[in-house]
């Protein structure tokens, strides 16, 4: 199996191993198939961009990856564990320890300070408040926002909010970051900064990233691109350098 950078890394347990996955949504007009037989394997350290037109099933797929939703059919192994076999407690622990979420709308809690926002996942790990906040401030420092630790989210810009959200996703040292259109609400310059941060996390920390985007420019930061169309994967290839030079 080829990793994102072309090396053979078959020894490793895949972070994501999906075989023949289906998802139907019940609608008044009958079941609507949003995913129709998806298979995908992602190894540790990969950086995958998921692309495809609107309604092609990208978010549906990401929700299943994030253990927020269950497939109608098919197996999903996250970090070697069959998700469908886990109970609520165990999936919550997976979301907390193994996964980090970054959303299009940032999704910070508006009435909490930024440090409390970043520290929030630790609340559910039972970490005492002082330790939580100390850790949160270190992460805010890493994303360059230490001086806003005591501010509310409404006080900072969208790009800054997204950096806070990334800090929050990082607080439990996740193996995998799932980001559904993280730059969808940002201008291109800010988007570049956010993507630079993702790239750094992927290269330096070896964190696996799966990122949904509509924009080719954004997808270029990833080392592998997966294209969805009508609930199936129509293309899965390493990012080619010359794509980046196209206008």
């Amino acid at each position: 199996m080829l990793g994102g950078d072309g090396k053979i890394i078959a020894r490793d347990t895949p972070v994501i191993a999906i075989r023949n996955l289906y998802k139907d949504y019940p609608t008044p007009a009958g079941a609507f198939p949003a995913l129709k037989g998806i298979s995908l394997t992602v190894y540790p350290g990969e950086f995958v961009a998921v692309m495809g037109p609107s309604g092609s099933g990208k978010s549906t797929f990401m929700n299943i990856l994030g253990c927020l939703d269950h497939p109608t059919y098919g197996d999903y192994e996250l970090n070697g564990k069959l998700v469908s076999s886990l109970d609520e407690e165990a999936t919550a622990r997976l979301r907390r320890r193994t996964l980090g979420f970054v959303f299009q709308g940032f999704n910070l809690l508006p009435r909490m300070t930024l440090e409390d926002n970043v520290a929030l996942p630790l609340v559910y790990s039972g970490v005492p408040r002082e330790r939580r906040l100390a850790k949160a401030r270190r992460l805010l420092e890493k994303v360059g926002l230490a001086r806003y630790a005591k501010s509310l989210p409404s006080r900072i810009s969208g790009g800054q909010q997204q950096r806070v959200a990334i800090a929050r996703a990082l607080i439990n040292r996740p193996k995998l970051i799932l980001a559904d259109e993280p730059t969808g609400n940002l201008d291109s310059r800010t988007s570049e900064k956010i993507m630079a941060l993702f790239t750094k996390l992927n290269r330096r920390k070896g964190i696996t990233i799966v990122l949904v985007t509509h924009e080719t420019d954004i997808a270029l930061h990833a080392r592998r691109q997966v294209r969805f169309l009508d609930g199936v994967i129509v293309q899965d290839a390493p990012t080619r350098k010359e794509e980046g030079t196209q206008p």
Binding site: L68, A92, R93, R95, R96, R97, F101, N107, L120, Y124
Partner: peptide
């Protein structure tokens, strides 16, 4: 808010 909490690992 509840959705966010659930997503980031609340039971």
């Amino acid at each position: 808010e509840i959705g966010i909490r659930l997503a980031i690992g609340a039971r």
